[in-house]
Design a protein around this nucleic acid. Structure first.
Lengths: 217, 217
DNA sequence: TAGTGTGAAATAGTTCACAGCC
DNA sequence: GGCTGTGAACTATTTCACACTA
């Protein structure tokens, strides 16, 4: 919907590869050496054909007899994401959500670090929040440029989101993760993905049929 | 991917309708009475044909001359989501993310209330967190059944997620919003949607091309 | 005459099916 | 014999195009 592709690998495939990597790390920890598309498919809840397609996108080819070498696959996927290794991330908006994201991302994808946070609340400015200095939004262009940040997380209220996004584009951000519940306009060469949590919850509530008081299969 | 449809309205359409409702509320606040598909399309960043299709799903038909009546549309979309009005929500997992979600949802979709939170951390049990009592996971079935909760948010670490989901299904939850980075298995009659924030960030980083230091259009 | 409703075309994405290999 | 790689079929979703209406 709001995702402009620019690589040759489809967005969906990349999503699944991230997922596969987790599964493979898990298998690797359990000393599994080879794995078949079927097994990955079951773990990831999709079809074996899909898995094969996705893995083919890596240019890695498995052997019919033993399947795919776990270590090799991890290396391939790691190689693909290697270019994201030194990407720095900026977070704008230190409300409840921004706060949570900050502490959340402090741990999870180890190779992506939030190196700067921005907010306009005087209470927060120039104080360290979750291991990260909070700067005023006005200093954003300067700091983003200096640090060479290319990825930005938008966690500001909806009315401010577009303005913030524009600033970030100008400052050099090329990838956006937008938590504000509005669609943002960014240039074609930037990539944006939206996470609309409130919408997701409404959707889930909508499709949750309480009538169906069936017993589990 | 992990979304099992059971209504007659496509999932994507529901997502967009939630979005449209926000836009319409906005227009309504600005005393706009009629709106054309074109205008909604521009605000929502998609095509006019798409908007017309989506609105047709409501069974509401606009007039060529004036377009769609804003109030009427709001009423229709409201009517569609009316069945979600009294849905109660349970949150499992009061880590950083769970905490943020709790305070986030305390405000946002006013008609969906988190009425119970669960965690196994003795530090949190039986204390009020963000206006909501935190109970031990063991009491989940009892409380969910008593309160008639049908929607659940899973914000526990990945290894515990499936187990928690199973418990919730047994307790009567029929809609899941899963923040754990693992695909969960739920019965066909339950609806599940995943929000994998870490994956999203990796994706954005992957597609953010710092090379493209082009000037904005 | 601009804008709607909708069939038809186009496109994207997923699954099927089978040749080839180990 | 079972599994991979891949063209072909299929499905879902979006866009196009145009008759129709206020």
């Amino acid at each position: 919907m709001t995702e402009q592709i620019q690589g040759e690998i489809p967005v969906r495939t990349v999503e699944r590869l991230v997922q596969y990597r987790r599964l493979l790390d898990d298998l690797s920890a359990r000393k599994v050496e080879y794995v078949h598309s079927q097994e990955i498919a079951e773990l990831a809840h999709n079809s074996a054909a899909q898995v094969r397609r996705d893995l083919m996108a890596l240019g890695y080819t498995g052997s019919p007899a033993r399947g795919y070498a776990v270590q090799e696959l991890i290396a391939r996927i790691g190689g693909l994401f290697d270019k994201t290794r030194d990407r720095k991330v900026a977070l704008v908006g230190l409300g409840k959500l921004g706060h949570a994201l900050l502490s959340f991302f402090a741990l999870r994808p180890a190779h992506l670090r939030i190196v700067a946070a921005f907010d306009n609340d005087p209470e927060k400015i120039n104080r360290e929040v979750g291991g990260c200095m909070c700067h005023p939004v006005a200093r954003m262009p300067e700091i983003i440029a200096r640090e060479g940040i290319t990825v930005g997380i938008i966690a500001v209220p909806a009315p401010a989101a577009q303005q913030v996004a524009d600033l970030m584009v100008l400052a050099g951000i090329r990838g956006f993760l937008n938590f504000a519940p509005v669609p943002l306009k960014v240039p074609r060469y930037a990539f944006i993905d939206n996470v609309d949590i409130a919408m997701k919850l409404e959707k889930v509530a909508f499709f949750a049929e309480p009538a169906g008081e069936k017993t589990p299969c």
